[in-house]
Design a protein around this nucleic acid. Structure first.
Length: 470
RNA sequence: GCGCCGGUAGCUCAAUUGGCAGAGCAUUUGACUCUUAAUCAACAGGUUCCGGGUUCAAGUCCCGGCCGGCGCACCA
């Protein structure tokens, strides 16, 4: 059976509901509309039939009568999930439901599968993630969450554009995976006979654009990290990276909290929300604490990057950290922070002044060369963003890369890779610049009240099925 | 990668100590002129995730595998 190639729709369900809200029970509007959508429910009753149709704006009842509706018998045999286009007058039934009284209709597409259960929806995670289309059809929460993701992306872009940032795109296929510490995915280009890596961060490319004179740039894009999957990690995820010449990390912290709180206002109309049943305020300003302060407070003992390495190592070991001989005091301090204080940062907060040892791209702190001018924001116990005054000294940058190379040689698979082209770019002159990275998926999780990152990704990474299930 | 839990009809879920594999919805058929989770009646629907094993008998117990959820590890 051939179905139509198009349907000229004159109104959406939501519009009809609003515009004819005033109709009294049993009243007819005299206005004919053409609406289209998916049949969600069907109640056939002899010579009458009622269907609930849904389009992207809402639901609307279709009211069919044997003496009025063309092909009435076929109408009563529509399947749940079928797409229909309907022409008819807007009326309100005697029992008070605003409806389109079906004069003519056409099936636009047939649903050959259905999930049947009208109130339980689809619960099986495997089915929901592998066939998100069925999940979206069946589950309203999935629709609102993914729509909210779109709203967040729009709000982030608009705020960046409004501040004069240029949206740019940088390579995903990279000869050298760098800009972060992570295992990359490897792929291969035939014509060039070269292995490429999917990017783990766009950071170095973006700073090269700043070197070129784009003083404000951002990229909103996918990055790929070949790491474990968890409720908070998907192998590909979306990151906002943003660079602003002439700013330092303090300026960027202020920008970050305003961005996140502003997006919450744009999307939800408030900064006062609930996450997983707990109150959460995103209102600015967010408190700032140095990493050493937080670790010291949790440990009940003053520690810093200047504490003797042996002391830091024993404190870490006491707390279950498997200390590597290659770690210096900076890495140990960062590990101590992670195992003690990190999970308690429910309300938004900035952690600042990370050790140089764990921050190979950040500029040294103006008051302590063992620290950097870096910050991370934490919300609901999770890292949400990361930023710093960018290291713009090519000599120091080379030293930092070389230190990373030593770690790599010692077996650290995630040590950052040296990029000669980037060092050369720094030699052209990077102005004082602050950078920011925001995990967009995690931001959406907070604003959509979702506990699992897969819920905020339309098609999360799953292991393919080899046989058996569809 | 490790541990715990789960996988039964298209969907959501039952199935006592091992004892004939079931319900609701969906599908199909019939009744019904104001339903809205419509109602009523009937028919049909199964590789109980896959492969072994124990047993007179396995959805249930044991071993291996697949997929998923959660926790841990990993994730600067």
């Amino acid at each position: 059976m051939t179905t139509p190639y198009a349907f000229s729709q004159s109104a959406f369900a939501g519009e009809v509901q609003q515009r004819w809200d005033h109709l009294q029970d049993g009243e007819e509007s005299g206005v004919v509309v053409r609406v289209a959508g998916r049949v969600m429910l069907l109640r056939a009753q002899g010579k009458l039939a009622f269907a609930t149709m849904r389009d992207s704006t809402g639901e609307l009842q279709l009211f069919a009568l044997a003496e009025v509706t063309e092909s009435f018998a076929e109408f009563t045999h529509l399947h749940l999930g079928d797409w229909v286009g309907v022409t008819g007058e807007v009326v309100r039934t005697k029992r008070g439901e605003l409806s389109v009284k079906v004069a003519s209709w056409v099936r636009l597409a047939e649903a050959q599968h259905n999930f049947g259960d009208k109130w339980a929806g689809i619960a099986d995670f495997d089915l929901r993630y592998r066939h998100r289309e069925a999940d979206l059809w069946a589950n309203e929460k999935s629709r609102t969450t993914l729509a909210r993701r779109s709203a967040v992306l729009q709000a982030v872009r608009q705020r960046c554009w409004a501040d004069g940032f240029l949206e740019v795109e940088t390579p995903i296929l990279n000869a050298i995976p760098t800009g972060a510490a992570a295992r990359p995915f490897v792929t291969y280009h035939h014509a060039l006979d070269t292995e490429f890596y999917l990017r783990i961060a766009p950071e170095l490319w973006l700073k090269r654009l700043v070197v070129g004179g784009f003083e404000r740039v951002f990229e909103l894009g996918r990055v790929f990290r070949n790491e474990g999957i968890s409720p908070r990690h998907n192998p590909e995820f979306t990151m906002l990276e943003l660079y602003r010449a002439y700013w330092d990390y303090q300026d960027m912290m202020a920008f970050t909290e305003e961005l996140v709180a502003g997006v919450a206002l744009d999307v939800l109309g408030t900064t006062e929300i609930q996450y997983q049943g707990r109150d959460l305020s995103l209102a600015t300003p967010w408190p700032r604490h140095t990493m050493a302060e937080l670790a010291s407070a949790s440990l009940g003992e003053e520690v810093s990057v200047h504490t003797p390495r042996a002391r830091l190592a024993s404190l870490a070991a006491e707390r279950g950290v498997e200390v590597s001989a290659a770690w210096g005091p900076g890495r140990l301090l960062a590990e101590l922070f992670e195992v003690t204080a990190e999970a308690d940062l429910w309300e938004p907060a900035f952690v600042t002044e990370h050790p140089v040892e764990v921050s190979p791209l950040a500029r040294r702190h103006r008051r302590d060369p063992e620290l950097t001018e870096r910050f991370e924001s934490y919300v609901v116990g999770r890292e949400l963003s990361n930023g710093f005054s960018e290291l713009n000294d090519p000599v120091d940058q080379r030293r930092r890369f070389e230190e990373q190379a030593r770690l790599g040689a010692a077996g650290d698979e995630e040590a950052m890779r040296l990029d000669e082209d980037y060092l050369r770019a720094l030699e052209w002159g990077l102005p004082p610049t602050a950078g920011l990275g925001v995990g967009i998926d995690r931001l959406v999780m907070v604003l959509a009240d979702e506990a699992n990152i897969r819920e905020v990704i339309a098609f999360p990474t799953l292991k393919p099925l080899t046989e058996g299930r569809d």
